[in-house]
């Protein structure tokens, strides 16, 4: 294990706006590191600084042992990057896109191209224009392109937005296979559920890295209490009751039911009692697994 990414107080301001605010973290070889945060929280800006695409205002970073400001070209050669927009040329076919980027990276062996195409499952689609591909397949072609030169580190910026769950799972299987071979992967997402796929997750909000740990540890540490799904009628009145109940740290609407986060001492009976006393009809109070969204709300609030 060695350190592949080292970010030390990385900061980037655009005028008055601080996009990334003193972010420090490390990533080790073979890790699948998630970077979770809403749009505009500074995820893409962080990746761009790590690739030397934009300069940090403050702080420094090393990627694959190279300084991001001074050794940009050498570090880029060892990194693969899949940007948010899937950098594909719509006028070109699958094969033409692949050979174009391969040529740019100086990869000329046809065997390597075929192998890469097979890896992402696009064999037989060589002559398809990329416009005709569904988003799941565009995503995989973009991954093939990012990996054509066999980098040791992959940056994936929002790789699965809008693709269907089945395609997303297949995509993650590809990522895990890479990690197994020792490729380090840094993947950003605004999608709370997706962060569950990562070995460790960093939570970004308004340019700040609030926490970084395994999903299980995040849940255990950031939410020392318990999470509950409360099914009660009427919904809005129940919400008001929960918000006023001692020991409830957060209550919110969640579709046809309520979600509550409580301190460790609070149990089912306490919640039933509080709701019952207010004259609310309670159908069920279930203890549930906290989600990363609960963690995010706890850290942000």
């Amino acid at each position: 294990m060695s350190t592949v990414i080292l970010a030390d107080n990385l900061t980037r301001r655009f005028g008055d706006f601080t996009a990334v605010d003193h972010v420090s973290f490390e990533a080790q070889t073979g890790e699948v590191l998630g970077y979770l945060g809403p749009n505009g929280s500074g995820k893409t800006t962080t990746i761009r600084m790590l690739l030397g695409l934009i300069r940090p205002t403050e702080g420094r970073a090393e990627v694959m042992g190279f300084d991001v400001q001074h050794d940009t070209e050498r570090l880029r050669r060892q990194c693969g990057y899949m940007s948010q927009k899937f950098a594909l040329y719509d006028e070109l076919t699958v094969w033409e896109n692949l050979t174009f980027y391969a040529g740019v990276y100086g990869v000329n062996e046809r065997a390597r191209l075929n192998e890469t195409l097979k890896w992402v499952g696009l064999v037989g689609q060589e002559k398809t224009r990329t416009t005709a591909l569904s988003s799941g397949w565009r995503q995989r072609l973009a991954l093939a392109i990012a990996f054509i030169h066999r980098p040791r580190l992959l940056f994936l910026d929002e790789p699965t937005s809008g693709v269907d769950p089945t395609a997303r799972r297949m995509f993650w299987d590809l990522i895990y296979a890479l990690a197994e071979e020792g490729v380090t992967v840094l993947v950003t997402t605004h999608y709370m559920d997706e962060a569950e796929y990562c070995g460790r997750v960093g939570i970004m909000r308004a340019g700040k890295l609030l926490a970084m740990d395994t999903p299980s540890n995040l849940k255990a540490k950031a939410l020392p209490g318990r999470a509950w799904d409360v099914f009660a009628e009427p919904l809005l009145k129940s919400l008001a009751v929960l918000e006023a109940t001692p020991g409830v740290t957060r209550a919110g609407l969640s579709g046809d039911h309520l979600r509550a986060i409580t301190l460790p001492g609070v149990d089912v009976n306490a919640l039933h009692a509080a709701l019952g006393a207010a004259g609310v009809t309670v159908a069920a109070v279930d203890a549930v697994e906290p989600s990363l969204e609960d963690v995010f709300l706890a850290l942000a609030g």
Partner: peptide
């Protein structure tokens, strides 16, 4: 289209 970003990170 965002392809320039991808080109920049290549050794070109």
């Amino acid at each position: 289209r965002g392809t320039i970003e991808q080109l920049i990170v290549t050794p070109i």
